[in-house]
Design a protein around this nucleic acid. Structure first.
Lengths: 255, 255
DNA sequence: GTTTCCCTGATTGTTGACAATGCTCATGAC
DNA sequence: GTCATGAGCATTGTCAACAATCAGGGAAAC
């Protein structure tokens, strides 16, 4: 399963199987718990509670929280407390704008720098997606993770460390958080597959301009899907006042 | 003086005149000390030393250091220590790629969202630059800060909070660090002024495409200047082996 | 002379206790 | 019934001491 690519790729790129320090370990655990929805978006975090839950003292915990804060996964207010970040629709769309800018640049750099082995790995991921997609539509969640693997590999293919850390260590965690927050999984997969293939082809042929442009459109399309569905959900609410809010999670967007 | 715009614009946008907590205050102080070169790039940081220097205990200091680490201003190794980040030329060029992606997006969004008041403020900054530039070339440092003010205002004009924090709270501090690290100030000012004016005009007329494209070229030009000068400095070193390495700081680039 | 090992000192990691701040809820005035 | 007030409590901020780890230097072995 390629999904393990997702687990924290620090700037140096290695995957720390066992964190050297408590603060490091609890940081990763909290990051995971937030992204997986164990700590719900918007829920309040109390230091004594977490410290007891993870069996550590407040010192390392606070350091971990400071890192989470810098990664925008929690929000703190001095002397008051911290809570898990809750993405508003506006912030989610802002996130897509940033992805458009950074991932299109990543695709351009990937077309310039990726090795043949890296391109092949990318193709393998695509094939894995499609086979999995055929298998079972209910497994859409893993497919979604796999989709991020695709973007992940392209970012790494840019060979730009700063871009990698910004996207992989910061933005992508927020993207995953959005999925759990809005119960968003799967969606427009067939179209996304086609787009993915075209992007890989552009990268493989070293066409920087095309790779950038295709990735840009790919992200824009995903953004638009989110925006449209949000507007639809508002209409639904108007028709069914005070009720059914499931529209947001019914047909979630891709990528 | 507009330079005060630079001092830490947290996500909410307000400027914390007096930090509510020790960790917060020492974080800002350290951030400043690093960017201003008081703590030289690459120098080792020891917790007892800093704690004594700032008159606090190691607890809040460590939290501040965690934040600095997340902002990429220091690098830590578990059980060993921390040192101020030292930008290699490769990383510096990577930084420019990110700026190209993000700032061109910011310019596009600014053209879409900026109010007439914000555009006017932007024009005022430009005028202030030029007057200051005429006054004294030795004051280039402040002019440089002013130049960042220009970019700063555009980013804020994007009305995209995530973009603002990423650029203003993360990248721009690294840009300033690069200036002190390579003693880089001023450079190609007249050309930059022209480009700045064109960008503002495009934003004022609401031409998103043009604003984006002009900003992209502006950043690319700056990147190219840096790259060329670096290549030149390497040539110089070949001609003067083991000696004069000042070439890097002799004619530093502009934005 | 070189290498290896161990010891010492210093630094980092962690903890529990104390101080300061903010929130909650009950009480009372209007 | 509503709103202001204040005490009590929980939570956050800070500190100093203890444990674990690493870097450097000197002595011994080859």
């Amino acid at each position: 399963m390629l999904t393990m690519l997702m687990t924290s790729t620090t700037s140096s790129g290695e995957i720390p199987l066992e964190a050297r320090t408590l603060a490091e370990r609890v940081f990763q655990q909290l990051q995971d718990a937030i992204v997986r929805g164990e700590l719900p978006a918007g829920s309040k975090i109390t230091e004594p509670g977490l410290a007891q839950a993870y069996g550590i003292s407040r010192g390392p915990l606070r350091e971990a929280m400071r890192r989470l804060e810098a990664h925008r996964l929690i929000e703190r207010e001095p002397h008051v407390g911290a809570r898990v970040v809750k993405l508003s629709m506006r912030e989610l769309l802002e996130l897509f704008d940033m992805r458009e800018a950074l991932e299109s640049m990543a695709a351009r750099l990937a077309a310039r720098h990726m090795t043949v082995e890296e391109v092949q790995a990318l193709r393998d991921v695509l094939v894995a997606h499609e086979e999995q997609g055929d298998l079972d539509q209910a497994e859409a969640y893993y497919q979604r993770e796999g989709d991020l693997d695709f973007h992940y590999l392209i970012v790494r293919g840019s060979h730009n460390r700063m871009l990698m850390t910004t996207l992989c260590d910061d933005l992508y965690y927020l993207v995953r958080l959005y999925r759990t927050q809005y119960s968003a999984r799967g969606g427009r997969p067939q179209r996304a597959f086609i787009e993915h293939h075209r992007i890989v082809d552009a990268i493989a042929s070293g066409d920087e301009e095309l790779a950038e442009q295709l990735m840009r459109r790919h992200v824009i399309a995903a953004r638009q899907t989110v925006a449209e569905r949000y507007a639809m959900s508002l209409d639904d609410d108007r028709e069914l006042p005070g009720g059914n809010r499931k529209a947001l999670s019914r047909r979630p967007p891709s990528v």
